[in-house]
Design a protein around this nucleic acid. Structure first.
Length: 208
DNA sequence: TGTAAGATCTAG
DNA sequence: TAGATCTTACAA
């Protein structure tokens, strides 16, 4: 399967949030384990006009990775117990990222179950904090490039635009009205936090 | 230096 | 529905 090059990430954040669906995220861990998962849910975050974005008030020690090269991993810790994983977008100097909210496990499933200490495959990565735990993604991965051999994306099976749905983002209070969440309608591995509107209610970029 | 909030998850 | 648990940002 083809590894995605840096060119892939030089697209607008919202478009990337859709294009990332179906792509395969690969993590070759330091202990020799290899984790693979297909992305089925994303959320876009942009500094401009988006109060929910970490970079809305400018660059800080934490969010400086968001200002880096597109295709960089931005991992941060929140709620005292969860790592969340983003892929940096927009040209260098402009803050933007796509939060990976859910994935469908493809490889290393037994290791993921041990990492999460659960048995049900469908619950392994159906939430942003869950997938980092399953794939052993930590703050050590913050700032890593997706053109490295440790973490990268592979060309997966592209979903038809008709199954890509959009909704408001989840778990935030600021800029909560933006329809910047993208997910695969009906996919069992999408997070269950809140049901979105029926598919097709809002046009996605790929449809229009 | 202290404090409050937070892009979450799980158990009860 | 609340508690876990810790980093960051901001105010004093």
């Amino acid at each position: 399967m083809g590894k995605l090059g840096e060119d892939f990430f030089t697209k607008p954040t919202l478009l990337l949030a859709e294009l990332l669906l179906g792509k395969v995220f690969v993590h070759n861990a330091a202990d020799g384990r290899c984790y693979k998962g297909r992305i089925v849910e994303t959320e876009a975050y942009l500094a401009e006009g988006d109060e929910a974005c970490h970079a809305f008030r400018g660059m800080t020690k934490r969010n400086k990775v968001m200002y880096g090269s597109p295709g960089t991993l931005y991992v941060y810790f929140t709620y005292g117990c969860h790592n969340l994983m983003n892929i940096v977008t927009e040209p260098e100097g402009v803050a933007g990222a796509v939060l990976i909210r859910a994935m469908e496990p493809m490889s290393g499933i037994e290791e993921m179950k041990k990492n999460r200490d659960i048995m049900r495959t469908v619950d392994l990565m159906n939430g942003p904090g869950k997938l980092t735990s399953a794939m052993d993604i930590t703050l050590e991965h913050n700032g890593l490039s997706l053109s490295s051999d440790t973490v990268y994306l592979e060309e997966g099976e592209n979903f038809p635009p008709s199954v890509i749905s959009s909704s408001k983002r989840i778990g935030i209070t600021k800029s909560a009205d933006l329809f910047w969440r993208r997910y695969i309608a009906g996919n069992a591995f999408v997070s269950k936090s809140k049901p979105g509107p029926p598919p097709g209610k809002k046009k996605t970029l790929l449809e229009s």
